[in-house]
């Protein structure tokens, strides 16, 4: 019984919001242009699903997000790893990274258009800039926060620095790395609108901006829902993979 109620909780939450939304529309507090009814949004989403245009936008945005996310992860992992294996290297790039961490990726758009044009590169760079830092900070935390007592175990078995990294530091840092990846993936989706603001003709971000220009608030809301749902599904997949990886090894904060 308790389990059934637990499963129903999210649905009840959504229903409350839908009822509230419907009520606000019925009372005419806002004009239908500012806040279209849930029915209108549902009908628009049905049309978009039937025509298949939404799937094309999802696929294109997903491709961009994935590309930017993977590049950001490789960069974050390499720089995080070099902090452990080559501590001297950190001195050269740490201040530069901290500088860019405080620069909003959107403020870079004018420069990126000048340097990289209006093609895919600029969009990818924006996603990289948005998702790199949460991943980098978590990866560094994971690598540098490794329990010294476990490293001593490696010392007692005459492990080399590389062996200690591979067998102790990396597995110990895995929960932090995965948390960083999860946050990074979320940031990549959040950056998609900014990225697709740059002369895009496809993708969810473009779809939302185009709908705004055409005064189709219902389509804007559909776009927001789709981004949220795709992000949620990606996040859940991450959760399942991590649960499998950490099976039996105790709490990992991913459940």
């Amino acid at each position: 019984m308790k389990k059934t109620i637990g499963r129903l909780c999210p649905i009840i939450g959504i229903l409350i919001i839908l009822c509230g939304w419907s009520l606000v529309c019925k009372l005419g507090i806002f004009s239908p242009y500012v806040l279209p009814t849930p029915e209108k949004v549902f009908n628009s989403s049905q049309k978009m699903l039937q025509s298949g245009e939404i799937f094309v936008d999802i696929a294109i945005s997903f491709g961009r997000v994935l590309k930017g996310f993977l590049i950001a992860f490789v960069l974050a992992f390499s720089l995080g790893m070099s902090r452990v294996l080559l501590p001297v290297a950190e001195k050269y790039y740490e201040y530069i990274l901290q500088f860019f961490r405080n620069v909003p990726p959107l403020s870079m758009i004018p420069l990126l258009i000048l340097w990289c044009g209006i093609g895919e590169t600029t969009k990818t760079v924006i996603i990289v800039l948005a998702s790199f830092f949460p991943m980098y900070l978590n990866i560094v935390k994971g690598f540098t926060g490794c329990d010294k007592r476990l490293l001593e175990v490696g010392d007692t078995f005459n492990y080399t620095r590389l062996e200690k990294f591979k067998s102790i530091v990396l597995p110990a840092a895995l929960p932090d790395i995965l948390v960083g990846m999860r946050i990074g993936m979320g940031y990549s989706w959040r950056a998609i609108i900014g990225a697709e603001m740059v002369a895009a003709s496809t993708g969810l971000g473009h779809m939302i901006l185009f709908a705004q220009q055409m005064s189709r608030t219902d389509k804007v809301i559909v776009g927001i829902f789709v981004i949220g749902i795709v992000g949620l599904v990606t996040d859940k997949i991450f959760g399942i993979v991590i649960k499998k990886l950490f099976k039996g090894t105790g709490e990992n904060g991913w459940n």
Partner: peptide, 24 residues
């Protein structure tokens, strides 16, 4: 050829008993 046993077990939490035993 020396080995060390610490006050705490210091086992690798991500490895099972078999893999912890062959850690060295």
């Amino acid at each position: 050829k020396t080995a060390f046993v610490f006050q705490e077990s210091r086992l690798m939490p991500w490895l099972n008993v078999w893999d912890n035993v062959k850690f060295g």
